[in-house]
Nucleic acid binder design. Structure first.
Lengths: 229, 229
DNA sequence: CGGGATATTGATTGATTTCAATGTGAGTGG
DNA sequence: CCACTCACATTGAAATCAATCAATATCCCG
């Protein structure tokens, strides 16, 4: 639980990177969540909502990390994004969710009825603008991710991922990853083996260091940026 | 020009598939475009707006087909989507476009100042809801596309693409593709050679027929759906 | 009937996946 | 405190799918 508490402080405050949540934290939509939201604690790996469920609520991460994913019939999984404290999720749905949302680590989220947001938006144009902007920001990220998935090599994907994660954390060059290699693989459209091999490769090139499995030091951001095409 | 005129009739009327435009055509947003929009004719392959340009306008396709794409520094290209008559595009931007929009065929579009939409949305909650819904619908498509790009084989990609294009056209099993093999390749994250080979493969399996390069008959939708995982 | 762009087909290479061990680390109970 | 275990991660060898390199072939348009 401690790690997530820390995450609140770092992820929730300022300078958002690209994992999710490009828009500043203080806005009419956040206020709406603060005012009307109900809290929910979710255990690591448990589901918040499922693919194909009616999208009744919209969510915001308070602490911990949430991932959204979609499965293919044979079990192949694509993770759409990781949501850190301060990020919204579930705003994308038209009427049913197309992704499943799960907690990567133990997490707390607040949720609000979508119908309430819609009627609030009808009265408050700030809220309505925020809703559009959040969806647009999410779309922006999805587009970047499409480019990565469609056209980038394994090294480029890993580089992009590390820079993205680093951008979300504070300025430090040491990144603590909240997710497993499998999560990373399924986010980047690779296998765990390729993720592992590529990290080792970058380590051997002295581009990164791996003090422990989930801790990565970026020793050469320039090299990573170069890989980021 | 004839081909596009036909496209208006088929793409603009009813049952939207997945290329773009899940939401019905008649809505407050469409009305806003009809009322305030200015027309623009664009020649095949010419640019409507460029990546990194300030996103001053939002657009709707009247006739023809528009593609949005993003380039990597070394020229690799990812096409984000094809927009057919009735579809909106450029609604995704936060403040500058991240994709370039170009006409696939000679096209006519209408465009409206985004600031005008924002102020209209402040007064008309229908418009504001439409803006959110359009962005959400676009996001939905982007997510499907992410799954395709991240996890699917060449055959599965082609199958998904053909079903998607067929879904947009009328019920007929014959699909006329408005775009080149290169466009298809860059949309699916493949090379033209792989697109070509895969189409031939499906033809040999009697799943499709290729009466001409840009005309495809779906002889066995069930087989395609099976490939669509 | 050219001629250039676009598409197909072939041969080969190569990056990533797959299959298969082996290694590591955190948590548990003796 | 140490051994044990289970999940997770790394590493290695082989197979595979798509990319690349290289000709042809076809289509559209003047």
């Amino acid at each position: 639980m401690l790690k997530q508490e820390i995450a609140i402080g770092s992820g929730g405050t300022a300078m958002n990177g690209h994992v999710s949540g490009v828009v500043p934290v203080r806005n009419a939509l956040s206020d709406a969540f603060a005012l009307m939201g109900a809290r929910l604690n979710v255990e690591r790996n448990s589901e918040i909502y499922g693919e194909d469920e009616a999208a009744e609520y919209a969510y915001k991460v308070v602490s911990g990390v949430v991932r959204t994913h979609k499965l293919l019939s044979d079990g192949r999984r694509q993770i759409g994004g990781f949501h850190l404290p301060g990020d919204f999720f579930g705003l994308d749905a038209v009427d049913e969710h197309q992704f499943t949302a799960e907690a990567v680590s133990d997490a707390t989220v607040v949720f609000v009825k979508r119908s309430a947001l819609i009627s609030l938006a009808a009265r408050d144009s700030e809220v309505s603008k925020d809703l559009w902007m959040m969806a647009a920001a999410e779309l922006h990220r999805a587009h970047d991710h499409m480019l990565l998935l469609g056209r980038k090599s394994a090294q480029e994907r890993i580089a992009a991922f590390l820079l993205e994660m680093a951008g979300r954390a504070d300025a430090s060059d040491t990144v603590d990853l909240p997710m497993s290699r499998l999560d990373i693989a399924d986010y980047l459209g690779l296998t765990i083996e390729t993720v592992s091999r590529t990290l080792t490769l970058l380590e051997n090139a002295a581009t990164i260091a791996l003090p422990s499995t989930r801790r990565i030091r970026l020793c050469n951001r320039a090299a990573l940026s170069r890989l980021n095409a």
